[in-house]
Design a protein around this nucleic acid. Sequence first.
DNA 1: AAAAATATTGACCAATCGGTCAGGTTCGTT
DNA 2: AACGAACCTGACCGATTGGTCAATATTTTT
Lengths: 226, 226
Amino acid sequence: MTRATKTRKGRPKSELGPPANGNRTRIRARNEDNILDAALEVFADCGFKGATIDQIAARAGMSKPNLLYYFRRKRDLYLAVLERTLDMWLEPLSAIRADGDPAEEIRAYINRKLAFSKLRPTASRMFANEIIQGAPLLGTVLQDGLRGIVDEKAAVIRGWASAGKIADVDPYHLIFVIWAVTQHYADFASQVEAVVGSGLSDRKFFRETEAAIDHILLRGILPPER
Amino acid sequence: MTRATKTRKGRPKSELGPPANGNRTRIRARNEDNILDAALEVFADCGFKGATIDQIAARAGMSKPNLLYYFRRKRDLYLAVLERTLDMWLEPLSAIRADGDPAEEIRAYINRKLAFSKLRPTASRMFANEIIQGAPLLGTVLQDGLRGIVDEKAAVIRGWASAGKIADVDPYHLIFVIWAVTQHYADFASQVEAVVGSGLSDRKFFRETEAAIDHILLRGILPPER
DNA sequence: AAAAATATTGACCAATCGGTCAGGTTCGTT
DNA sequence: AACGAACCTGACCGATTGGTCAATATTTTT
């Protein structure tokens, strides 16, 4: 109340989050990006409840009310971060081509998924956090979209198995195994690091990991000939 | 202040948590058990920060101050739950025998680990939560104990590989792959359920899972002969 | 330049939560 | 019965935190 107390009011009040006109501002685009980047890190490190808006705002270089100006609720921000990376998470699976060489398609899928774990480990960890706790906030969003793609690709893999081009393994379990293994190196990186002292960001270790996974999943553990 | 305000005081005050004499009471044993059971569920579902003492106390059928009477701090309870299941978590690996048949030892290890995921899925999820967030509270406790056993068993596996009894795969990666796959069905159960509609508690699905994992890890994905 | 829209913040609030405390009840022992 | 130890609870407190609001600063538009 420094001076002047007449008629001014800041805004129409009810909807001050989104932009009035349809398209977004330069400043808005930049800030939303910074916020989403910061939120990804903090949510991955602390989980949904553990993360605080203050923490994210500080990391994004702004005040808490300013962050809330762009994302009205913590949950909104959380879901925005997940949606932003969902496509990247699903892309490797989508890229499987039914008309390619089966063994090579699967090997390429494994390697793409591992590359994602290397490139976006925090995104992987954030998904892991959410799913471990039963996907309470992501809910059906992920699962509906997921099931369709998985069913589709499982059919492709089953076709390969029926044609004798790959071993006769259940396609769903094959997909689960690939998910499990490739994501393990991102989600449980702290454990891997504790045991062997390296992570996927180490180029040499990445190549070794890739080779070992490819070998085990494609050729198995049993000796080459008996 | 109903009446009588003379000399009585409840307790010596400073140490009222632990029992005065060495051994524990019947009531204490029962309550601690209930609390640890309840805490495991809640911590697995919500993570450390997300879980509340009230929630755990309610699930254990007692008041919050009463729970705090047995476990003075939330962190104490958290660590107690982890320690209580750590042995079960490590046991399958410890049970690997250097003088057994290599392929059978590894297959048995895989199956023991999967059985743990079936029997104690919440324990697995609680460990997963902790490790994903960098094991901030478990810290070196798990990792020190872990590394020793892993190094030991990795040496055993390496010996088998050198002797040509199994394929020449890096033993550490082999262990990571087995961890990843077997724990996946507990930690990401909600995702598995969303895709195929079943979990390890379904006997038929459990047998299928066991068979698929054994097949992929032992024999690989490539067709049996070319 | 002035008005309008957008961006930013300090101060504040209500709810939640970890933990304390004084006192009361039950249990085991003699 | 009685006495101390163990067990239990309602009430409370301080700190944290998600979210609001009025007011101000900055940018964009006319």
